[in-house]
Amino acid sequence: MTSHNFEYSRFPEQILQWYDQNGRELPWRQKGGQYADPYHVWLSEIMLQQTTVATVTSYFEKFLHNWPTVRDLALAPLDDVLTAWAGLGYYARARNLHKCAGVVWHKYGGEFPNTEEALLDLPGIGPYTAAAIAAIAFDKPCVVIDGNIERIICRVFQLEETLPAGRPAIKNHAAKVTPIERSGDYAQALMDIGSSICRPKRPDCASCPVGDLCSVKDSGLAEHYPKKAPKKAKPTKGAVVVWIEDADGRVLMRRREEKGLLGGMMEFPSTEWTEKAHASPAELGDLLNSLGGEDQLNDCGSAPEVKHTFTHFHLKLLPRIYRLYERDSIQSNHLSWIEKDKLDQFALPTLMKKVARSVLSGQNELKL
């Protein structure tokens, strides 16, 4: 379908008509012409990154119960926020959530700015989230485009651009059909349609409110759009992770640096994650000595290997178990001794929960 034949005004009209009758009822939404609370929109959008609506709903309600306003969230201890976030993954989002709440409270008096430009300056808010908040909470005519909307636009216009390089061109097409009014409702409508109708696989073209405008309806080609560049093979990294336990059943943990993967989260110490077999004896010895000394530890063998996949690589960790001879021989400000039957009270990343399960398997001491 060529652009000069496309009836651009009909597209948003039909989308909004569908939304008024079929849009999902979600706890962070307002319908009937009312604007949603910016705090609710922001919180839900951060949670929905890399996570499904079904999973997010209970977390959203829990956060609102714990921290009803952005001020409450800003003044909450970071560890409390990380603990409440546990299970949603991508913990950098939680750290930025807390940091952003602080900026909104201290710099803006608890009121979110209402423009894309100002929102983009806040921690953890990128182009999509800024556009979504501005459109949904403040009715700004923003071009909101996420994976669902991207897919719809590519199919309707049968765009041949390949992701991710083709995103600017796709956004240009999306801008042509974004309405000046009700752009927030329009964006949420497209999200709903992408989730339930214009699905990645087996789209329900018969139920689509813009099927009459779509270039690929009934062509059998819908699943071929959007076009994607071939994925690069993920490398596999390996390391040794150490479980050091004292006579009182406490386990040694440390907090990762704030920046980077799993930043700010608690972890069982490990050698460096590298693209080779598990760490050499020398590397393991260096780690143990950095933790207080290999000569203070009794080697109790290994636990089953732990496998985990991150966005860009696979990881294999081999847990090695040690018992500490002298309970006070390891002292450091960045290390913590945690009772192993209370590990579930901490915001451990999924990877570290897997390590704990591997070491404690068969002991029935911990449900993680």
Rank of each mutant, 00 (worst) to 15 (best):
N114Y: 07
P141S: 04
E116M: 05
P123C: 07
G211Y: 01
K171F: 02
F138C: 08
P203Q: 11
T115H: 09
A174V: 10
V177I: 15
P168R: 06
E116C: 09
V242R: 10
V144H: 08
Q188E: 15
L122H: 03
D246E: 10
S215V: 02
F112R: 06
H173Q: 10
A137E: 13
Y186V: 08
W243N: 03
E150R: 11
R155D: 03
A174Y: 03
I170G: 07
A233D: 12
G109Y: 01
V240C: 13
V216L: 13
A189Y: 10
P209A: 03
D121S: 14
I145R: 00
P200M: 13
P203I: 09
P230E: 12
V156E: 07
R167S: 02
P203S: 11
V156L: 03
T236I: 13
A132S: 06
E181T: 15
N172K: 15
E150I: 01
Y128T: 08
P164M: 04
G124A: 05
N172W: 06
V242D: 08
D204A: 15
I180F: 09
P123V: 10
T115D: 06
C142N: 06
I153Y: 04
C154S: 08
P168I: 00
V240F: 12
Q188G: 11
S195H: 11
Y128W: 07
N148M: 11
E181F: 01
P127W: 07
P179V: 04
V242Q: 06
A118S: 14
A229Q: 02
G211T: 03
I149E: 08
K237E: 12
A130P: 09
V240Y: 15
K171T: 15
L221W: 11
A239T: 09
I197S: 10
P168L: 00
G126Q: 12
N172V: 14
A130Y: 07
G147P: 02
E245H: 00
I180L: 15
G220Q: 05
R202Q: 14
P226I: 06
T115C: 04
A239M: 04
A206Q: 13
K234C: 06
I149F: 01
A137I: 11
G147I: 07
V210G: 00
G194S: 08
I180A: 15
G124K: 11
S215T: 11
R151V: 11
R151H: 02
V242A: 14
Y186E: 01
D246Y: 12
G220F: 07
D185L: 07
D121H: 09
L190P: 05
